[in-house]
Simulated assay, not measured.
Amino acid sequence: MARLRFSEEFLESLAGLDERVEESVWKKLALVQDFPGVGSSLVEPTLRHAYGPACLKVVAAGYDVLYEHGEKDADGVEVVDVLGIVSQRAVR
């Protein structure tokens, strides 16, 4: 199981979403935590430019949750950096 590390941008964006969307995001992140390679590498160019070439995404209630594999921490646990959350309507 990986350890999730959240960016300030992600946390601020998540705070502005309704409860249903937030619940969906947490469910998807639990999946990412258990299986860090899950998700899609087919990230829109604007998001790849903003979040880096190694970012992956999972979809939650009409939002793209962007993350990337970090390095292992001092205890050897894989770290996943949760970078941001973006409305799919804003990207397309």
Rank of each mutant, 00 (worst) to 15 (best):
D34V: 11
G70S: 06
Y63I: 04
P45K: 09
T46R: 12
Y67L: 06
M1P: 10
W26F: 09
K72S: 08
P45Y: 07
E22P: 02
L83T: 01
E71W: 03
E78A: 04
G84F: 08
V38E: 12
G76A: 06
E22V: 13
A15Y: 02
E68N: 03
A90T: 03
E12R: 09
L31A: 14
E68P: 02
V65N: 08
A61H: 08
Q33R: 15
S24A: 15
T46E: 14
G76T: 07
E23Q: 12
G84H: 07
Y51N: 05
G39Y: 05
G70H: 00
F6G: 07
Q88R: 15
A50S: 09
L11W: 07
L11N: 05
K28A: 14
V82Q: 07
E71K: 09
L83R: 02
K72F: 10
H49G: 04
G84L: 00
A15V: 05
S7T: 01
E8R: 03
K27E: 15
H49R: 11
Q88H: 02
P45A: 14
W26R: 13
E71D: 06
V58E: 11
G52S: 02
K28G: 13
A60I: 00
G76Y: 01
W26N: 10
R3H: 13
L66V: 05
P36W: 03
L42C: 02
E71G: 00
A15Q: 15
D18T: 11
A54E: 12
L47W: 06
F6R: 08
E22A: 15
H69K: 11
A61C: 09
V77I: 14
Q88M: 14
H49P: 00
S24R: 15
F35C: 06
R92Y: 05
D18C: 14
A54N: 13
L47C: 03
V80W: 01
G39K: 07
E71N: 00
V65S: 02
G52H: 09
D18G: 10
E8N: 02
A50L: 04
V77R: 13
Q33V: 00
D81I: 13
H49E: 08
V82I: 05
T46D: 08
V79S: 04
C55S: 11
L66Q: 04
E71Y: 11
P45R: 14
F35V: 03
Y51I: 01
E9A: 08
K72D: 13
R89E: 14
S13N: 15
L4E: 07
F6H: 01
S87F: 02
F10Q: 01
V32L: 10
D75Q: 14
D64V: 00
V86F: 00
K57C: 08
A60W: 04
